[in-house]
């Protein structure tokens, strides 16, 4: 399986976007990104958890212990109001940058 490295700074955006669909635990987040990217993107645990703790500290997400679908105790992360705002911001920025990059690639 080919691994594609995430662009730096995009992990937060992806995590926020994935959590926008509802609370998930760490493994679930990694899985969801993997699946949604059609197996192109793999999120390393070594990046995922630092990112989660960082965002938790910034107040964009909050964590709560709960039951996973298989009945295990797991820590679920959910978007806060600030997180939603942050997601909108980052998404806008991303769109702008992506468009700009696309333009450059097309027209150069």
């Amino acid at each position: 399986m080919e691994k594609t490295e995430l662009l730096s700074g995009t992990l937060d955006l992806l995590v926020l976007r994935v959590l926008n669909g509802g609370p998930l635990h760490g493994f679930g987040i990694a899985e969801r990104i993997h699946v949604l990217s059609r197996d192109v993107l793999t999120v390393e645990e070594g990046s995922l958890y630092p990112s989660l703790y960082r965002m938790e500290e910034k107040g964009w997400i909050e964590a709560e212990w709960g039951q996973s679908d298989k009945g295990r105790r797991a820590k679920f992360y959910a978007l806060t109001k600030g997180g939603r705002k942050q997601l909108a911001n980052e998404r806008q920025t991303w769109d702008r940058v992506a468009l700009a990059i696309a333009d450059v690639l097309r027209n150069a």
Binding site: H25, G26, F27, E45, Y49, W65, S68, R72, R73, A74, K75
Partner: peptide, 10 residues
């Protein structure tokens, strides 16, 4: 300990 549990479960 929480982090431990989280990682183990992962």
């Amino acid at each position: 300990t929480e982090m431990d549990a989280e990682m183990r479960m992962h």
